[in-house]
């Protein structure tokens, strides 16, 4: 029976979709059977990041509304045979999602996968609430900035009150994933520190993903970074986060600023 994991944040542009793809792929790389579900109906992106945009026939809304069968809508990844994508519809909007429909789709996915990873849309409206509704675990993607942290706090409050688990008196296990962490800016005090973020959110940390060109490149060519450049710092951070998600103890590495030769030569600017 699959664990249902929602990747959410409240704020847009923090890296939910990128993280869904990277962690979904990393889970699949570890041999588990994974389906990533795009809940961003109307503004779908996960298919692009996964490189499956040219193979979408049916989507989540078709399945929710009973037009298509789940097996018709699921797209198998070309690189990993145990990774699947359930794309969102681009032509509809979030009102097309119904709670009963989503419940049915999730219940149908659960027996045949180890992980159902739900990529939540930004915001706190229908799409986001339904993406988290049936979650067992949640990854809250946060950038080290006040606006993102406050939105994450809001989302944590909703995870604790608006999910099926919360309503049954259980807990959704929550993890903070700090993304777009820029070591240089953090060192200069231009970003919130990791401790500050964790102190505000009072939730355990799953990993710190450095801001990286590798991620942008991976997204552009439609391949999760953990597959595209597994040796990169970002990919390793995602791999470590995935291991922690599976219960392994992996020491946390705070990305450090890497100074090139020119930085060293020209690191200090004269006043």
């Amino acid at each position: 029976m699959a664990k249902v994991l929602v990747v959410t944040s409240g704020k847009g542009g923090v890296g939910k979709t990128t993280s869904t793809a990277a962690i979904g792929a990393a889970l699949a790389q570890s041999g588990q059977k994974v389906v990533v579900v795009d809940f961003d109906v109307g503004l779908r992106n996960l298919d692009l990041v996964m490189g499956a945009e040219r193979r979408v026939v049916f989507d989540l809304i078709n399945v929710v509304q009973g037009v298509a069968k789940l097996s018709q809508a699921l797209i198998r990844d070309k690189r990993l045979e145990n990774l699947w994508l359930l794309p969102a519809s681009q032509t509809r909007d979030k009102d097309a999602l119904t709670e009963e429909g989503v419940a049915r789709v999730i219940a149908e996915l659960k027996p045949s996968f180890d992980w159902v990873v739900c990529d939540s849309p930004a915001g706190i409206e229908r799409g986001a609430t339904l993406a988290m509704r049936f979650a067992d675990e949640a990854i809250i993607v946060t950038n080290p900035e006040v606006s993102s942290v406050r939105d994450s706090d809001r989302i944590i409050g909703m995870l604790d009150s608006k999910t099926v688990r919360a309503e049954n008196g259980e807990r959704v296990e929550k993890h903070i994933l700090i993304s777009r962490y820029d070591a240089g800016r953090a060192a200069r005090g231009e970003m919130l520190g990791i401790e500050d973020v964790l102190e505000i959110l009072a939730t355990p940390l799953l990993g710190i993903i450095p801001e990286s060109q590798d991620i942008l490149r991976a997204s552009n060519i439609g391949c999760p970074v953990t597959l595209n450049s597994p040796g990169s710092a970002a990919a390793r951070a995602y791999m470590d986060a995935t291991k922690r998600l599976c219960g392994e103890t992996v020491p946390m590495v705070v990305p450090a600023e890497r100074k090139g030769l020119f930085n060293k030569l020209l690191g200090r600017r004269a006043a």
Partner: peptide, 27 residues
């Protein structure tokens, strides 16, 4: 005994409120 998160509103007109945790920005 849990933090009050951003966007949450706790209204208790009958007496004192004690929070064992933080009250988030926007709460």
């Amino acid at each position: 005994d849990i933090p009050v998160r951003s966007g949450q509103s706790v209204v208790f007109p009958d007496g004192d409120v004690t929070v064992l945790g933080s009250v988030g920005s926007g709460a």
